[in-house]
């Protein structure tokens, strides 16, 4: 009697403990696809895009992802013959999202830099912009060193973070936020005096405050954006590169650029030091 009761107790507890886990497992699917065949079989390509960086990736009035990256993603899915599923994410979390297989690829306005190329696989560039330092008009900044005494906001791990951290002494007051929205807010509210930005921040600011008090101070570099995947996915990489060539040749990419940035497509570099476009 005692042992029977004992056993039942164990089973009840055990089952109850496992139940939620089982439910979780039921609804789960295989991790990030390894090949194009897997994506096609699934019928959906999962693309990571930013959701707070107009005009690259943001939510439109109805809450749907929109922007340059999203349009390119749609083109890509169309050519692949599958549906695109966009997963909104933050700058700080994007690499973890693709590395842990949450998405198949990132079109997340991700600049092609050697540090990142060690972790993810880039394709050739599909977009470009300038990385700049933005500050109040009155602020005298001619070289980066002039900004050493200011409170500077950047997105943690972003291209601006890398450039500014490298250029300033360790004692500089650099505040690293989770995402672009926090950085922009910090600048507008005066929590920081300058921010690492890109040319499209300026576009947005000018739109909302036509007589705004901010201006571009320094250009750090021209940044090229590539599609990022997990390393080693050779056929996916080759396929994406072919596709980028295709939409460049057909003028489809130029149309996307015109629509969102209102500029002609820049001349993309054919190689970037330390950032291979193909699987080595």
């Amino acid at each position: 009697m005692i042992s029977k009761c004992f056993h039942r107790r164990v089973i009840v507890c055990g089952l109850a403990l496992i139940a939620p886990l089982g439910l979780g497992a039921l609804s789960s699917q295989r991790a990030g696809a390894q090949t194009i065949a897997e994506i096609k079989q699934r019928g959906i390509v999962r693309i990571g895009v930013l959701s707070e960086l107009p005009p690259w990736g943001f939510l439109d009035g109805s809450g749907k992802p929109a922007g340059y990256d999203v349009d390119v993603g749609e083109l890509l899915a169309k050519k692949m013959g599958v549906k695109a599923e966009f997963v909104g994410m933050t700058v700080a979390a994007r690499i973890a999202q693709v590395m842990t297989g949450k998405v198949d690829m990132l079109l997340a306005t991700m600049g092609m830099y050697p540090e990142r190329a060690k972790v993810v696989q880039f394709t050739e560039p599909y977009a470009g912009m300038k990385i700049i330092l933005l500050a109040k008009k009155g602020q005298m900044i001619e070289r980066l060193e002039d900004a050493a005494a200011l409170r500077i906001g950047v997105v943690r791990g972003g291209a601006q973070d890398i450039a500014i951290t490298k250029g300033l002494p360790k004692s500089a007051d650099i505040r690293r936020f989770d995402d672009d929205s926090a950085v922009i807010q910090a600048l507008i509210t005066g929590q920081v005096q300058a921010i690492g930005a890109n040319t499209t921040y300026m576009m947005n600011l000018n739109k909302i405050f036509p007589n705004n008090e901010f201006e571009q101070k320094l250009v750090f570099n021209e940044q090229w954006m590539g599609i990022a995947t997990k390393p080693g996915q050779k056929d996916l990489n080759v396929w994406l590169n072919t596709l980028i060539d295709e939409i460049r040749a057909s003028g489809e990419l130029a149309a996307v650029n015109k629509k969102w940035i209102d500029q002609p497509l820049p001349e993309f570099p054919t190689k970037i030091e330390g950032v291979p476009f193909t699987v080595q």
């Binding site: 497992a25 609804s27 789960s28 699917q29 295989r30 991790a31 990030g32 973890a96 999202q97 590395m99 842990t100 297989g101 949450k102």
Partner: peptide, 8 residues
């Protein structure tokens, strides 16, 4: 969860 190879 991502690392367990069951993406969701």
């Amino acid at each position: 969860i991502g690392l367990l190879n069951i993406s969701m």
